[in-house]
């Protein structure tokens, strides 16, 4: 615990497809809902009906605009723990409450050990740590550890809540350590990338980039306009093209 496992048997994680994420917040809310009574329960909300409501959420959805000077675009962007391979959130933790599991690489906080020093949240560049002031402990995405192995759930339901809920099916779950897994292949095909690689944290989760726009002639294999037919005036001759016998 103190230190990171040298190697994890699996690298379980999420892949989010930014090409199809519509920014609907379903993943964020379903995450909140599952985890409210899950491993890190509850996810306290303070001032719930007042001026400044704020709560513990493991997943939050941003919206960005990009501008290259000619084209601008909008990109929806969910953000949760990336279950990094070299996460300082674990190593800075003075109590061992924060740890990375050797068996699957999931980064967790042990609620019984955490002293709520918040240092791990300072050490996470990805904003994935959520302090529950009411409980006085740090909480975070558990990769739905209480779902993915849960024998009380149907096999097909043993997936993170956010993945199951995502209406656009923009979220994928699997073993990113296994190059043969569906999810690794997807990352491979689509040029999946890690956020802020310069941190050296080596996020396990990956993002699939938005595809290039198709807004110029030729992008769909067409010309930029239709050729007017020869007799295209609206004069009566125009309708000669209708001479072909059409049967009902």
């Amino acid at each position: 615990m103190t230190s990171l496992p040298k190697k994890t048997q699996k690298k379980l994680g999420l892949v989010t497809d930014l090409d199809i994420c519509v920014g609907c917040h379903a993943c964020a809310v379903s995450c909140k809902e599952w985890n409210a009574s899950g491993h890190s329960a509850p996810l306290t909300d303070s001032d719930a009906y007042g001026k400044d409501p704020s709560g513990v959420w493991f997943n939050r959805v941003h919206v960005y605009e990009t501008d290259d000077g000619h084209n601008t675009r909008t990109v929806n962007f969910p953000r949760s723990c990336l279950h990094c391979e070299q996460p300082a959130c674990v190593t800075v933790c003075p109590t061992g409450a924060s740890y990375k599991r050797e068996e699957d690489g999931i980064v967790l906080v042990d609620a019984e050990k955490c002293i709520g020093c918040k240092l791990c949240s300072w050490a996470c560049p990805y904003g994935a740590r959520e302090y529950d002031a009411d409980d006085g402990i740090m909480k975070k995405c558990t990769l739905c550890i209480d779902r993915i192995y849960n024998e009380n759930l149907e096999e097909s339901e043993r997936q993170p809540a956010c993945v199951i809920a995502c209406p656009a099916r923009a979220r994928h779950f699997g073993d990113l350590g296994d190059p043969e897994s569906d999810i690794s292949r997807l990352v491979e095909q689509r040029g999946g990338y890690a956020l802020m690689p310069e941190t050296g944290y080596q996020p396990v989760n990956k993002y699939l980039p938005p595809r290039p726009r198709k807004d110029r002639a030729g992008d769909t294999g067409t010309t930029d306009h239709l050729e007017a037919a020869e007799d295209s005036s609206s004069g009566s001759s125009f309708f000669s093209w209708l001479d072909k016998a059409l049967s009902r």
Binding site: N35, A36, S37, G38, A41, P42, L43, T44, D45, S46, D47, A48, Y49, G50, G55, D134
Partner: peptide, 13 residues
């Protein structure tokens, strides 16, 4: 009645 702090889920612990 509304509670200022909402701790939905704790009742299942």
């Amino acid at each position: 009645k509304k509670s200022k702090t909402l701790r939905f889920g704790e009742q299942f612990l």
